[in-house]
Design a binder for these strands. Structure first.
Lengths: 146, 146
DNA sequence: CGGATTTAGTCAGCCTCTCTGTCTAAATTA
DNA sequence: TAATTTAGACAGAGAGGCTGACTAAATCCG
């Protein structure tokens, strides 16, 4: 099945490339302790705090898995759990400053990759890609809310 | 980190959507025994047969992991290992008929998803997306050979 | 040619991720 | 207020992935 890969694989390949670069950058900046699964969850934490169930849904894992990952992130000092003032059953997962510090590093790595892609594709095509993927999110992101 | 997701995540979301649909279709057709990791490897098996190391590189896993997955696929009757006539150390992993039967099912599921995407994006944008991703592969696929 | 190095693959052990199932406490519904 | 739903935690199991160490065949080089 060498040529004419299906869209799924075509999407996966560059995704994986971005991910690898981001993790390499984080590791180089002394954050080699973050794992892939943790990173995926971390990306989805809202600035105002997120509930565990929300994170689980967004990352498409079970609540148990999300809980397991948040435990690790909490122990590593990337998030903290605070009581949810509107619901005593729930707790809000919030990013710590340590996690906030990650964002510029990750963003820089993504920007670097994007620059390479622009060089290969041209700016116009790159913008189209970004735009198309954003639109696609409307029908493929289970967490989507407009 | 609600809006303006990075390209990595933007690629990941639709990729995941395709994958879910394909696996649902395979399961519905009585191939619920294939796992995600097995599927990723299976996709990369060349019609002429592939070496374990090639598969490992293509799927970006270690040879050990690839071996583990091929063992399972072999036991489930999806691939077979035949000696490589050109190198007595190596063995060629080949798809069995059972695996060949998977392709049309997967393809149909992908086609269905693509149709939905075309309905949402328009044909022109969809073609651009496919084309752009294919070009991107040249600089993001470690397995790329022109 | 023959020894040294590289390459293909396997075996063993370990850790992470993810799941299912079960349980509690709080909130919501009837 | 009683019944149901929802948020999350706890326990156990299995798959996927890794590193390290090993064998055998192929290739390189003096």
């Amino acid at each position: 099945m060498a040529e004419n890969l299906n869209v799924g694989l075509l999407l996966f390949i560059p995704y994986r490339a971005v991910e690898n670069r981001v993790f390499a950058a984080l590791a180089a900046a002394g954050h080699g302790d973050i794992t892939l699964a943790q990173g995926r969850l971390l990306q989805r934490v809202d600035d105002g705090g997120s509930r565990l169930s929300e994170l689980a849904e967004a990352a498409q894992v079970t609540k148990q898995t999300a809980g397991y990952l948040v435990d690790q992130l909490e122990r590593a000092g990337y998030v903290e759990r605070t009581p949810d003032p509107t619901d005593a059953r729930a707790r809000l997962v919030r990013l710590t400053e340590r996690a906030q510090a990650l964002k510029p590093i990750g963003d820089a790595a993504v920007a670097e990759v994007e620059a390479e892609w622009v060089a290969h594709l041209g700016r116009r095509r790159m913008e189209q890609l970004h735009d198309t993927l954003t639109r696609l999110r409307e029908i493929t992101d289970p967490y989507w809310k407009p």
